[in-house]
């Protein structure tokens, strides 16, 4: 089954918003709305532990493994959606 970038990005935005709501990330930036264009690096400033935990949720949700190289190139939710789709079709 082929996933669409737009759809996955929308889902990821929801997963991230849910994750942030759980209260681990308590910064003013985290209160903003999450969209596919949200830059997780510059807009959200999640620390490395929060990033890894969020990635775990994403991996579990889509049953994919995100390699380190992909991780190092992800900035926005859209980037992440691209990585998830690529991993899913492998």
């Amino acid at each position: 089954m082929k996933l669409s970038t737009k759809k996955v990005a929308g889902e990821l935005a929801t997963i991230l918003a849910e994750y942030l709501k759980k209260g681990w990330v308590d910064t003013p930036a985290s209160k903003q709305a999450i969209t596919p264009e949200t830059n997780m690096v510059s807009n959200l400033q999640m620390d490395s532990f929060q990033v890894m935990e969020f990635m775990l949720e994403v991996e579990d949700h889509y049953d994919v493994a995100i390699d380190l190289e992909s991780l190092s190139n992800i900035q926005t939710i859209l980037d992440l959606a691209g990585v998830v789709i690529a991993a899913h079709s492998e």
Binding site: V41, M46, S48, L68, E69, L71, S72, I74, Q75
Partner: peptide, 11 residues
């Protein structure tokens, strides 16, 4: 060995 999100060049 730790890689940060979006930090390819920095690493």
């Amino acid at each position: 060995a730790g890689i940060q999100l979006g930090a390819h060049g920095a690493y």
